[in-house]
Computed example of a mutant assay.
Amino acid sequence: MTCNILVGGGWGDEGKGKCITYLCYHDEPEIIARAGVGPNAGHSVEFNGEKYGLRMIPSGFVHTGARLLIGAGVLVDPEVFHYELDYLNKYNVKQRTFADYRCAIIEEEHKQQDKASDHLYKKIGSTGTGCGPANRDRALRTVKQAQDMESMEGFTTDVPLEVNTALDEGKDVFIEGSQGFGLSLYYGTYPFVTSKDTTASSMSADVGVGPTRIDDVIVVFKSYITRVGEGPFPSEMQPEEAEKMGLEEFGTVTGRKRRIGLFDMEMAKESCMINGATQIALTCVDRLYPSCERVTEYSDLSGEIKRFVEEIEDATKVPVTIISTGPDLKDTIDLREELI
């Protein structure tokens, strides 16, 4: 039995979707549970030559033997939820995807309020998906729950009961977080943050799993760092420099151009400390070091990349166990066995 959590170490967009897909496809957990804020976070998944952009359904859907759950701490937009069920129909997700009956529901009024707010939409850089207003109503105890919605009938369950029963039976559970450490309402670059905490502790609470049941916390860092929207960015580079390096990117949910910066070692240290990281996944190494594209053996990496990995491990005191060298699942260096 294992129960592992994966979270973002930056401001989101770290490549969590690729890492989640890889880990779930290879480790085959019985339950994959989504934690985090809600549909304001997009995960990109590339599998068998096809690309998927997801905002509600767990990114580990490619493991077709897993039950896909959405924790009570996650905001659900029924429109997005049902769109993705249809979108991923060939993976039989309708028969195995369920939200906790206590999930708070995003309604149209929440999205309108989000976009109409100069503070949220223009100053903070909200995605406009209604998450902030919905979490406000949740705190005021006026929001509707999934169990109150006819559109969610047949798609709800008791997620903590399912997850903890599975662990009691010796089954494996994987909890996938969204957003990133720098967007935490508590520990991020306030006020340019999301509407709740995004650290591993909250991800555990989102799906109703106590901290004593967690085995590993995997924190994902991109080899450079990106940010969508406003807020402090100490290591940010000029757009012209990023374009010259071939690091131009756009947000999965908003389509907005991402701001680009160099890897922030101080932020990585703080992220690992507060998340209680036991492993690090390092993504987009091929974007920063094109010579390592699609490399699958650590020994085949250049000395420059190995020194970069060692610097991260020395600074954070956490081992780098997953290195992504391309978008496809096979473009991965897996060093987890070396920890055993």
Rank of each mutant, 00 (worst) to 15 (best):
G65T: 04
V219G: 03
K115R: 15
D197P: 00
G65F: 11
A281M: 12
L85E: 06
S299F: 02
A277H: 08
Y25S: 14
Y186L: 15
K144V: 04
A134D: 08
N275M: 11
Q147M: 14
N275P: 08
G177I: 11
F308A: 12
R258A: 14
T2H: 05
L247G: 02
G182C: 13
N40L: 07
L247K: 07
Q238I: 09
Q179W: 02
S202G: 03
D86E: 15
D328R: 11
E311Y: 01
G177K: 06
T198Q: 10
L262A: 02
S302F: 05
R138P: 05
L88H: 01
N275A: 09
E14V: 04
G73H: 05
D264K: 05
I5H: 02
S195W: 11
Q279H: 13
G38F: 01
S59Q: 02
P160H: 02
R336G: 09
I106T: 06
V220W: 01
I57F: 06
I305A: 01
P39S: 08
S195A: 12
A116Y: 01
C284F: 15
K122L: 12
G132R: 05
G231D: 08
G60M: 06
G71K: 07
S324F: 02
D314I: 11
T127G: 12
P78K: 03
T296Q: 14
Q113W: 05
E169G: 03
G251Y: 06
G17K: 00
Y22W: 11
F81C: 05
T165D: 10
C3F: 02
V309Y: 01
G231Y: 08
P211C: 10
I323D: 00
E50W: 00
G246I: 06
A99F: 05
E169D: 07
I323L: 15
K257V: 08
I322R: 08
P239E: 10
I312Q: 00
